[in-house]
């Protein structure tokens, strides 16, 4: 039954994102996932919410896994219309400072 056994440790994955065409993949951070498939999906959701990338690699200790070019649209376009994630979306009244 659940709760009795200790939680299995999920492997740590390092995440590399190519910000734009023409730039190399850069390390952006890490995350936990039980396998590569989920690591890649979590990396997309965690590190490219604001259109920070066009391609992702997730790397466990030894292997390397990259997102497939076919998935580019479904991966990244859904972040395109979430303009409210950017501070410039908000109207700040004239003369209000420090926001």
């Amino acid at each position: 039954m659940t709760g009795q056994t200790p939680t299995p440790a999920e492997p740590l994955w390092e995440v590399f994102v190519r910000p734009r065409r023409g730039l190399s993949h850069g390390h952006v951070g890490s995350l936990h996932a039980p396998d590569a498939e989920l690591a890649l999906r979590h990396a997309r959701d965690l590190y490219t919410r604001r259109q920070e990338g066009v391609s992702i690699w997730v790397v466990p200790a030894a292997a390397l896994t990259a997102s497939s070019p076919d998935e580019k649209d479904a991966f990244f376009d859904p972040a395109a219309d979430k303009v409210y994630r950017h501070p410039t979306f908000y109207d700040v009244p004239e003369g209000v400072a420090h926001l």
């Binding site: 995350l31 936990h32 979590h42 959701d45 965690l46 919410r49």
Partner: peptide, 15 residues
């Protein structure tokens, strides 16, 4: 079950 998944499901809700 994991915080990573909270972020994924929030993205889906937003879509």
């Amino acid at each position: 079950p994991a915080m990573e998944e909270d972020i994924a499901l929030a993205n889906i809700a937003l879509d």
